[in-house]
Computed example of a mutant assay.
Amino acid sequence: MSYKLKQESISSFSTATAADICTEFFAGQNKISGESIMALTEVRQVNSFIIESLFTQWQSEIARLRSPYFDFEAEEVQKALKEFMNTLSNHINIGRGHLEPLLSKAIETTMLLTFAPKKYVLNHWFDEQKENLPKGKLRYIKTHTEGFKLIHDTAKTPINPAYLGNLFDSMSSHFEIPEPVEFLQKLNAEDKLSLLFEFEKEVAAEPAPSQVFTPEIEEIPEAKTSVAAKHENGKETINDRFNGNSNGPTLAEKLQKNNIQPLEKTLTLNERIMFAKTLFDGDQSLMKKVLEELDTANSMDEALSKTQPYNKKWDIEGDEMDAFIQVLKRRFN
């Protein structure tokens, strides 16, 4: 079955999906933190675009901090502002009324980026006035990452739409479109598939009929050679042993329980080095202590709340924070 994105329906789809997600999240709480935004949906791109909107707003507010009496461009001032932003990012506290429009916009942009990446490049990634690709936006791209990086690194200024369109076409093989149903399931929005996509069944050409010859086959008496037949007369079969009416846990349940490892052991070498250096100031023992505390959590929300005493200096916009969230999602989702 082939699908075609209905671009005119993206806005209504995004509004409805954002409302559903907010209804579920805010059923038990009034505000959402920055850490929770990073794990709000299973689509990293949506979460990333919300963070981008927040920091775009921050940059807009900082731009208004200008004075004839103070030098806001001074190196020490810029450093202090950055430290202030890192502190402020750990105190994000947003209600539904302000989050929902940000989420709707993030979903809308994500759908275009994911299923119509060329249109996204031309409409959202290209700064026509400056004839270039805006700096810094690449860090928020979590889908088709390789393709966008290639375009970013290859494009030569000045850029115009025709040149950028041709450049995208030459790299289109790096933009693999996902299967819509599976993608929408991550947003719990598979029921809105027909709202967002047109789909048609692919009709295969019927092969020309050919004459079928059916040879005569001599019937052979059925032989009792199955495993079940070998264990008749009340004897336990292999099937009984593993699928019997036992009240104990099943084999799958035992394996699943035994497969839960401490978070520290699930880290790759790169993650271990990155987290220790960036999130824990090089303190390996502190990182181990925090991970052991997170091992006692029973849910993603509980794990995130347990990081509160330690994340005051974490950069919520940074790749390290994003990677740390993904480690927690591997455990709890």
Rank of each mutant, 00 (worst) to 15 (best):
I238L: 08
A323L: 05
E73K: 12
L150W: 08
F197P: 00
D322M: 05
E42S: 12
P117E: 08
E271Q: 04
D71T: 10
S60H: 10
E83I: 07
D322T: 14
S194M: 13
P158M: 09
S36F: 03
Y120S: 02
D20H: 10
A162W: 11
I177C: 06
Y163G: 02
D295T: 11
I159R: 02
K201T: 08
A155V: 11
L184D: 02
T41P: 01
S104V: 09
T109E: 10
K4E: 15
K329G: 01
H174L: 13
Q211M: 10
A204V: 14
L65V: 13
K288A: 09
K192W: 03
I151Q: 01
D191G: 05
D153Y: 06
V290R: 00
I151N: 00
A80R: 09
Y3R: 02
T214D: 11
T143V: 12
E131V: 11
Y163L: 14
L113V: 08
N47C: 10
N90V: 08
E206V: 15
S89M: 06
G28Y: 06
L102K: 12
I141T: 04
P207L: 06
Q59L: 13
I217L: 13
I238Y: 02
D319I: 08
N47D: 10
T296F: 08
S53W: 00
E76M: 07
G234N: 08
Q261G: 05
E317K: 03
D319Y: 01
N188Q: 12
L150I: 15
H152K: 13
Q7I: 15
L263K: 00
F280I: 10
E131M: 14
D240V: 13
H152V: 10
D153W: 04
